[in-house]
Design a protein around this nucleic acid. Structure first.
Length: 272
DNA sequence: ATGGTAGTCGCACTA
């Protein structure tokens, strides 16, 4: 296995991989990540456009699809190993896939699609919100129970559906009771971050007091002019990789492409 | 102050 000098990882909630395969091609050609972690592929494994990815040079694929909803995938330029998919909350949902990258010193990459949580931030009246919090608690327990040398170097990415910091949303005050930015969700996310001393790579490059978004609602008349965004997508690393981040970029352009996903891709590069 | 859009699948659901 030839050793890689850098590892470039991208994460993107694509909101239907079949509909937006052209966007994916454009993104891969322009940015050439080693790995692209996709969420909301919205198809079963046999409907995933594997041939297209092979044609684009991303022939190493880890797939956890589901009919119509959710679904995650990791497509890679370089060989991957130890593909794993975990089920959360006994729901049968396809919301996680993990791989190891042998060429990158066995870095383990986890890709998540955390439940959105519905509208009402109340676990008594909204079972989707309860599901979201339970999902985060299960993630936390798993990482607490899996601290060992084999998984020392890890990258965790995905649509976590939570914007934890004040400047991860366009208006902290107006979103405090809006699912994605409520204190209870942020507490759950903070506990998950502590479970393996995860480092927030996006905020490593952008100070906490600067606005940083990765998602803009479809419902705004002019998403760019209104700029009422939220940072729902994340890239985290374990302390064993603390000195490796080289760069980070939110590819906001992609939100302005024709018939776009409501999420922009996020890319991070690490030196190995 | 409410409703606004998008995708999949089939006429509702999730986001």
């Amino acid at each position: 296995m030839p050793a890689m000098k850098t590892l470039k990882v991208a994460t993107w909630n694509i909101n239907s991989v079949r509909l937006r395969i052209g966007h994916v091609e454009k993104f891969l050609k322009e940015h050439k990540p080693d790995l692209l972690c996709l969420q909301e592929i919205k198809c079963q494994n046999d409907a995933f456009p594997e041939k297209d990815f092979k044609k684009f040079g991303y022939g190493h694929i880890a797939l956890n699809g589901q009919k119509a909803y959710h679904g995650v995938a990791i497509v890679s330029r370089v060989p991957i190993a130890d593909i794993e998919m975990r089920e959360f909350c006994k729901m049968g949902d396809a919301r996680h896939v993990a791989v190891t990258v042998p060429g990158a010193g066995d870095v383990r990459v986890h890709n998540y699609y955390v439940p959105a949580g519905g509208d009402e931030p109340n676990v008594e009246t909204n079972e989707k919100f309860a599901h979201k919090l339970n999902f985060l608690t299960e993630m936390e327990s798993w990482y607490k129970a899996h601290k060992n040398k084999k998984t020392a170097k890890m990258v965790l990415v995905g649509d976590l559906n939570i914007a934890p910091l004040e400047h991860d949303v366009w208006s902290h005050k107006q979103l405090l009771k809006v699912v994605s930015h409520t204190p209870i969700e942020v507490e759950h996310l903070d506990r998950l971050m502590k479970s393996h001393s995860w480092i927030d790579v996006m905020r490593h490059f952008v100070p906490d007091d600067e606005k940083l978004y990765s998602w803009w609602s479809y419902r705004a008349k002019d998403w760019a002019a209104a700029n009422k965004g939220r940072r729902l997508d994340h890239i985290w690393i374990t302390p064993a990789m603390a000195d490796t981040p080289k760069s980070m970029q939110v590819v906001t352009d992609a939100r302005g492409w024709e018939r776009p996903s409501d999420h922009a891709p996020v890319i991070a590069t690490f030196k190995l």
